[in-house]
C-alpha cells in the first residue's frame, strides 16, 4: 500500500463520516463541522487521485487551495446565519421556527 493510496482511503472514509455526521446530528454547529470534514475528505481525494506516484501536480493543488478559502468563507457565513437564527428563535437546531 502506497502513501497516496492510504490518503485516498482516508479521504473516502472522511467523506462517509462527514455524510453520516451531517445527517445524524441536530446541533447546527455540529452539522457545520461534519460538512467541513466531508469537504476535507473531498480535497484529499482530489489531490490524492491526481498524483498516484506522489509527484506533485500543481493544477489540483491550486484548485484545492481556492477550495479551502471558499470553504472557510462559507463556514464564516454559515456561522453568521446560525447566530442570527439563534437570536431570532433561541434555538440551535432546525426543528420548528419562530412561527410555530
Amino acid at each position: 500500500m502506497t502513501p497516496v493510496q492510504l490518503y485516498v482511503l482516508a479521504g473516502v472514509l472522511l467523506c462517509g463520516l462527514g455524510f453520516a455526521g451531517f445527517l445524524l446530528t441536530s446541533h447546527l454547529l455540529r452539522k457545520l463541522m461534519a460538512f467541513n470534514i466531508m469537504g476535507s475528505g473531498t480535497f484529499l481525494l482530489l489531490v490524492g487521485l491526481a498524483q498516484p506516484n506522489n509527484t506533485p501536480d500543481p493544477v489540483p493543488q491550486a484548485l484545492v487551495l481556492t477550495g479551502i478559502v471558499v470553504a472557510l468563507a462559507a463556514t464564516a457565513l454559515a456561522l453568521v446565519l446560525m447566530r442570527r437564527w439563534y437570536h431570532l428563535s433561541g434555538r440551535t437546531d432546525l426543528q420548528g421556527g419562530p412561527g410555530d
Binding site: C15, G16, F19, A20, A50
Partner: peptide, 28 residues
C-alpha cells in the same frame, strides 16, 4: 448509516479504479 456505508464503499471502489488507471493527460 446504511446510506453512509453505501456511499463510502461506492466512493472507495471508484477511487481505487481511478488510481489503478494511468492518467490520460499529464497536466504536470
Amino acid at each position: 448509516l446504511i446510506a453512509a456505508v453505501v456511499l463510502t464503499v461506492v466512493l472507495g471502489q471508484t477511487a481505487w479504479q481511478i488510481l489503478a488507471q494511468p492518467t490520460p493527460v499529464d497536466l504536470r
